[in-house]
């Protein structure tokens, strides 16, 4: 007898047919991976980080392999928000998946302006990037203090006409106070973690591997840190949490749901296995069938600690 299970999750006015979202910066605008699998199977796509104007990004090398992960320093290369609206939204809309526009800026005004522009476009949510470690201005410099987060989110919330997700950096002393600041300033949800600031050195040449010297660490190496932060933040805030960091399969995703995440993002794993996203969806379903779980929502925050 086949059992019917529910994979759909809803939060902050966003409806996802399953809790698996492609993480920003790893999936472009979906075009490349659409040649590998039906991207309409995804709960959502968080698109490549957008800025008001096109950005060239950082010089190469922009990637270094590290134990169980990678460091990247792309530096927000993107075609700008207007090109995204004109050229990319119509493409992604051909698929039945939520569009989450990841937005960055150098100044509070940039964040306000890009939010206004995106609010009038055909997207499902805005993910405010207050956590990119690879650019000099804006981003992580706002995201690393509760005051910085409060300042940006309050201003942006006033002009946002779409659900507002705030993406948090793990490169802080206490991520809980940052998440609370986002919540108090009006964020509809938080997503975490962005990459962990790190570096790699080539001992032979005595030079850093990345041209930018430092970069953001992602992949399985960061999973325990991400899981801990998602757990701590979920306990402290009332708004939904989107968890990410080293998720490669269904079991990893279930762990994040149990830690308190309402949805998860998968990214770096896809560089190695282009089917990682769909395999994560299938893996959650398989876990639910095996463990007699009818509704994926039952897993959220279901961690047993006694």
């Amino acid at each position: 007898m086949s059992r019917k299970i529910n994979m759909a999750v809803s939060f902050a006015g966003i409806n996802l047919k399953n809790p698996v979202i492609a993480a920003s910066g790893t999936f472009g605008f979906g075009r490349e991976y659409s040649q590998y699998f039906d991207i309409g199977r995804l709960g959502g796509i968080a698109v490549k980080g957008l800025t008001l104007l096109p950005r060239k990004g950082n010089p190469p090398p922009r990637i270094a392999e590290t134990p169980s992960g990678i460091l990247n320093s792309v530096g927000l290369q993107n075609p700008g928000v207007h090109a995204f609206i004109k050229d990319e939204i119509p493409f992604i809309r051909k698929y039945n998946t939520a569009i989450i526009a990841n937005a960055s800026g150098n100044t509070v005004e940039d964040y306000e302006k890009i939010t206004e522009i995106l609010s009038d476009s055909d997207i499902d949510a805005i993910e405010l990037n207050l956590s990119c470690p690879n650019v000099k201005e804006g981003c992580m410099s706002f995201g690393s203090t509760p005051q910085g987060v409060k300042k940006v989110v309050e201003r942006v919330k006033k002009v946002a006409k779409k659900p507002l997700i705030v993406k948090l950096t793990p490169n802080v002393t206490d991520i809980v106070e940052i998440a609370l600041a986002a919540q108090d300033a009006g964020a509809d949800a938080v997503s975490l973690i962005n990459t962990l600031l790190g570096m790699a050195i080539d001992a032979k040449t005595r030079r850093p591997i990345l041209a930018n010297i430092t970069g953001g660490l992602s992949g399985p190496a960061v999973k325990p840190v991400a899981l801990r932060m998602v757990y701590q933040v979920s306990k402290a805030v009332k708004i939904p949490v989107i968890g990410m960091g080293g998720i490669s399969n269904g079991q990893d995703a279930v762990e994040f749901l149990l830690a308190g995440a309402t949805a998860v993002m998968v990214g770096t794993a896809g560089f190695v296995n282009p089917y990682a996203w769909v395999e994560t969806i299938d893996g959650i379903e398989a876990y639910m069938l095996e463990n007699g779980v009818d509704d994926v929502n039952e897993l959220i925050g279901g961690l047993i600690t006694d």
């Binding site: 490549k48 922009r62 896809g270």
Partner: peptide, 13 residues
């Protein structure tokens, strides 16, 4: 140096 190899991650600039 490459990441995804198919043009999504933008690292091999």
């Amino acid at each position: 140096r490459m990441g995804c190899g198919i043009g999504a991650c933008l690292v091999c600039a």
